[in-house]
Write a protein that binds this DNA or RNA. Structure first.
Lengths: 249, 249
DNA sequence: CGTCGTGTTGACAGGAGTCAATGTCAGTGG
DNA sequence: CCACTGACATTGACTCCTGTCAACACGACG
């Protein structure tokens, strides 16, 4: 807030092709003139501080974002219903797709730690897409991915036990970190227990207990928010176990 | 099955602009040459019988579909985990978006009753979109909608009681029927109690009990699969009640 | 030092799953 | 026409997972 006027980072000249996440970003596969246009279009706003809100629920939809570093959560408030965390976004992931085609943004986007994002004005993306079927494909591809992710999440929330949810959450994070070149077995949970509980549909106490149980069973080690997946394979097996809550029905 | 050779319906000359669902379909807002191209592209396969599968999980993704009449469910099988219903599709709704960008179809699509669909080869849609930003917008719009639907569903599955889920399910169906010109208070549930349970993350017995309770409370009347929403407003209120399963934590 | 946010742990209760028995209905075949 | 079958649905009894309430620990911060 003290640097309101300095909206852009020093590296104004930054270029997508030099970005370490280029190969995982929306720009994947773009080259030459299209990539240059893309570069020219995007903004790199100042970093968000922990707890700062990038987008407010109900804001007019205008931009997509990519996480450069740090992480975000999406929080949706529905009427009198308690707020709910619907998504966590890690570096290299595209944020805001669920606002497309709706007048406004469906949830708050809140930084979980110091976070850098790139900002893509969607209207300009639309223009670029008319000239670049590669970019169009890329965006459709990403939205399809997100639909499938949501589907998996719905399966998880519906009829799986607390242990299975946590195991799935941890191994899912592991996979996402691995894909982006971070350690798949040792990482920092930037979200609180409350966030995890909200996301997984569990009470905060249950989150705490399950994590404690996993530690006892030597599946993980835990120091505050730093977690090591000691037995990732076993976690995966728990997550996929046939016996959920409706196994026999 | 007796008409295998007659893959197309008699009305081969059918045109989108004459379809009663035109204004709700992917074709909304298209006109002139683009609409003609669209018409030329799409197929109208023979109707599906109840229980017949339109698409098998793992099939190579190739088409989108629109429901002309009848209804479909999407069923996802994950490893040893019990099958799960992830979606119901009503007339006028677009089917198959979640296959975009993935090599193959993420679930079985099964007819819940006699069902007619239109079939859009996606590769040709992609070509058409290059010329028609209206069509492109329309498809993005629809995918965004679906993302937001999934998000609502995740909120529902995570931390709401059985009563709230059923109330939400019924009022949601009501709204979808209303939007398409059917009665919002009196309709036929083409899906079984088992399907509903799987979709809502409830045991089949719970579905039955909640429906029974709603009937006792004069919120609905029920005769087999025919349902009347007697007190739609009250149902809505139940669905939105603040006190879910994590209301106080 | 007190307070607040966060996290852990224990005791308890309730909602919803599981198991089991029974009812209903459509389709089939004798 | 009726018995038989299987799918679907309802209802009751019981269990247990997980949410709720409450107490407490810990670190950050004013």
């Amino acid at each position: 807030m003290t640097f309101v006027s300095a909206r852009h980072l020093p590296y104004v000249g930054a270029r997508c092709e030099r970005c370490s996440l280029h190969s995982r970003c929306l720009t994947m596969g773009l080259e030459g003139a299209v990539l240059a246009d893309f570069d020219a279009m995007l903004e790199r706003p100042r970093p968000l501080k922990r707890g700062e809100t990038l987008v407010h629920q109900g804001d007019r939809f205008a931009n997509l974002y990519a996480v450069r570093s740090g992480s975000l959560k999406q929080v949706v408030a529905q009427g009198e219903v308690r707020d709910q965390v619907t998504h966590f976004y890690l570096p290299g992931e595209l944020v805001g797709l669920d606002g497309i085609g709706g007048g406004d943004c469906p949830g708050n986007l809140v930084a979980l730690e110091s976070t850098y994002v790139c900002e893509f004005p969607f209207s300009r993306l639309e223009v670029l897409m008319q000239d670049s079927s590669a970019l169009q494909n890329r965006l459709f591809h990403t939205m399809g991915e997100e639909l499938r992710d949501h589907q998996r999440m719905m399966c998880l929330l519906s009829g799986r036990t607390a242990d299975q949810r946590m195991a799935s959450f941890l191994s899912g994070l592991s996979e996402r970190f691995r894909l982006r070149g971070y350690s798949p077995t040792c990482f920092y949970l930037s979200m609180s227990r409350g966030d995890i509980g909200s996301y997984l549909g569990l009470a905060i106490e249950t989150v705490s207990r399950v994590l404690g149980r996993f530690q006892q069973q030597q599946l993980i080690t835990l120091e505050g928010r730093q977690v090591s997946l000691v037995a990732l394979e076993k976690l995966r097996r728990i997550a996929e176990e046939g016996a959920g809550r409706h196994s026999g029905g």
